[in-house]
Each structure stands twice: as C-alpha cells, then as structure tokens.
Design a protein around this nucleic acid. Structure first.
Length: 382
DNA sequence: CTGTATGATTCTAT
DNA sequence: ATAGAATCATACAG
C-alpha cells in the first residue's frame, strides 16, 4: 500500500501466479516451450507415424508443423532476447549503484529491491509474450487440427482393421479398453497432437459407436461388407484351424485341402466388384450339414441349447464367429447347399428384431432370413 | 453442385 | 459412466 515507487503499477503478481503456470503448461503441452526437438515434437512425431499409406493426410500436418515450429522459434528468440536484456539491464543498474555507492552508502537491501523490481518488470513482459504465443498456437490449432469437426478419413488400412474386428465380433462388437488400444495401435489412427494415445482410443470408440448404430440401422447396406470381412476372417481362421481340420478330416464331408485353395490375395478386397459378387455367391448357401471336427469341441463347450444366458463370453463369441465364417466358406467351396435364394448371405449375428446386441444372439450365430433361427443345426451335432 | 459416407460431438436414457 | 440416437460438418464421388 505504501509501497512508494509506483513501478509496479501494472500487475501485482508476487505470489506463484496461477495464470503464468497455466500458460507455461500449455506451451509445454504444445511443444512450444520444451526442449527443441526431443520432447516437443513427440506429438508431431506420433502424428507423422500415421504414414502407412502414401495418400495419407500428412500434408496438412506438415503445414501445421511448419507453422508451429515457426511460432516456437519466434518464441524462443524473443524469450532469449528478453533474458539477455534483463541481464544486461540488471548489470547496468548494478554498475550504476556501485558507482553511486561511492558517494552515498547503499544498503544491500536496496540493491536487492532494485533487482527484484527489474526482474518483475521483465517477467511481466515475458508473460505477455507467453500469452500471445499461446493465442497464436490456439488459433493455429483451431485452424488446422481441432477445427472442431475438421474431419479426416482414416486410412484404408485402418478402416480395414477396424472392420475386420467389427465383423469378426459381430455378435458382441464392444471391444474392451485393451482391445481398443490394440486396435488403435494397429491402425495408427493418431491424428492427435497434445496428449497422444487417449485420443486414439477415443477415436476407436467413436468408430465402433458409429459403426454399431449405422450397421444396425441399415443392415442391408452392410451385407456386402459383412460378407467380405467374414471371408477375410474366415481365411485367417482357416490358417489357424487348418491343421486341426486336416488332422481330423475323417469326419468331414468336404475335403479341406481343396477347399482352402483360395489365397489371401484373393481377398484383398480392393473394392473390385467381381470379387464382391464372387464372395457374395460364396455365401448364398445355408450353413447346415457339415461339421468341424476339432473346433466342434470348442463349440460345444460354449454352446447353449437355450440360446440365451451366454453373457459376456467374449472369447467364445470370437472363436465362434470365426468358426461360423469358416463354415460358410467350407460349405460353399465344397459346392453344396445352393438351394437357397441369393440374398440370404451372411446374416447378422446376435442382432435380435429389436436391434439388441447384448446377448440376444443365438448360439448358432448364423440366422438366415429365409431359414429362421430354428432350422439350422446339424452343426451342433457331432 | 448435390448426394452420400464418415468422423466427431452432443444430448438423452440407463 | 456408457451406449445409443440425433446431429453436425467435412470428404469425396458423381
């Protein structure tokens, strides 16, 4: 109050100063403040990791990066300048005081006070700098990255991975937190900047949320896709189960070896239409009248004749859906059972009439519209 | 430019 | 808190 020399006029922030802390934190988070290339560009590096496909979206990212580093450079330059100026000024004043000390006695206290005034002044300038830097970053961010709903499509590869998971877990398309992380990692859907992985998982969640609801809303629209990915999964499953099938082919009416001739490349699904139709026709058969000797065991253990109370059992659902798709492929490649109409195809698992997903699916998760839930079932036998 | 696809956000119900 | 539903805003194909 009596503080005399009015030099402080502008701000009175002697204490820690929360605002400054906030600015500092933000600048750090944005990679403006931190170490030059190490920590600061970690987020950027993560973003750049999305590389994968050449047609990626890194163009705008690099643009953003360029501007951000520009900001950073300016910020650092200015900061340094201020610091230097501060030091110079301080020494100047000190010299002056020292000179004066010849003529009048100057207490160390007074010196200290002087120095602290100077420092305060400069730090207020610094704060201004930080503030405007923050503003600049915010603007840049909102322009490039956030922009609220500045949407970027995921890479084809990423959607493929997500779809694969979705359709192979169609009976329970709710990936766990870990599964999401894994998927996120696999997809490299890192469009984030600041905090990295959280957003990525959130994106996976978004994707599944959207997918579930859109799938449910218009299943017909997704049939092709479902078939496609079912086939893919089947092929994968085939690799895994092939040995078992081979070993115990004694029971099987089909000859597995010839059945699995299809190669992975055949299912690259680059939106080739003829492939689509091919696959579609593959699935027009019913799913009855065959059994998978070995996998049948896994099956039985989790199959519940009542068709309900089969909650959770994620692993079970997973295996089952794989086996389901596998069976489709096998049955078709064997060339039987084509007496059905062309549009039954691979029908949705576990989706009841109301659209419930939870545990509404029947154990034999293939419900052909033309057949109804009840009619399949030689496959449970064994 | 128009229509559809799609990622993100917001609101609601549970 | 979480999923679903509605909605928004952009991407992209025609």
């Amino acid at each position: 109050m009596l503080g005399g020399l009015s030099i402080r006029g502008a701000q009175e922030e002697d204490p820690p100063d929360p605002q400054l802390m906030r600015l500092d934190n933000m600048l750090l988070a944005e990679g403006v403040a931190g170490p030059e290339k190490g920590g600061g560009s970690a987020a950027v590096a993560a973003a750049a990791t999305a590389s994968g496909s050449p047609t990626d979206n890194s163009i705008e990212h690099s643009d953003y990066r360029a501007k951000l580093s520009q900001i950073r450079q300016i910020y650092h330059t200015e900061l340094e300048k201020y610091e230097q100026a501060c030091n110079e000024f301080t020494t100047h004043v000190m010299n002056l005081l020292r000179e004066q000390s010849r003529t009048r006695p100057i207490s160390p206290k007074e010196i200290e006070r002087m120095v602290s005034i100077i420092h305060r002044k400069f730090s207020s300038i610094q704060m201004q700098l930080k503030q405007s830097t923050c503003e600049a970053v915010m603007i840049l961010r909102s322009r490039f990255l956030d922009a609220r709903r500045k949407r970027r499509n995921f890479s084809k590869q990423a959607t493929e991975i997500l779809n694969e998971y979705f359709y192979s877990h169609l009976s329970n398309p709710y990936p766990s937190e870990e599964a999401k992380e894994e998927l996120a990692k696999k997809c490299s859907i890192t469009v984030s900047q600041g905090v990295g992985s959280t957003i990525t998982v959130a994106q996976v969640s978004n994707w599944f949320g959207n997918k579930r609801i859109r799938y449910k809303k218009n299943i017909g629209k997704f049939q092709e896709e479902a078939n496609l990915y079912a086939a893919k999964t089947a092929v994968n499953a085939a690799h895994a189960v092939a040995a078992a099938v081979q070993n115990s082919q004694t029971n099987s009416p089909t000859t597995p070896n010839s059945g699995f001739q299809m190669k992975d490349e055949e299912f690259q699904l680059d939106s080739a239409e003829n492939k689509n139709t091919l696959l579609t026709s593959m699935f027009t058969g019913s799913s009855g009248s065959f059994n998978l000797p070995n996998s049948g065991d896994m099956f039985m253990s989790m199959q519940n004749p009542n068709g309900d109370s089969y909650q959770g059992a994620q692993v079970g659902a997973n295996v089952q859906s794989q086996v389901d798709t596998l069976r489709h492929v096998i049955s078709q490649t064997a060339g039987y059972n084509d007496d059905l109409g062309g549009n039954s195809m691979y029908s949705p698992h576990g989706l009841d009439a109301n659209g419930g997903w939870q545990d509404a699916m029947t154990p034999s998760s293939v419900i052909s519209p033309t057949e109804g839930p009840g009619s399949v079932h030689s496959d449970t036998s064994n």
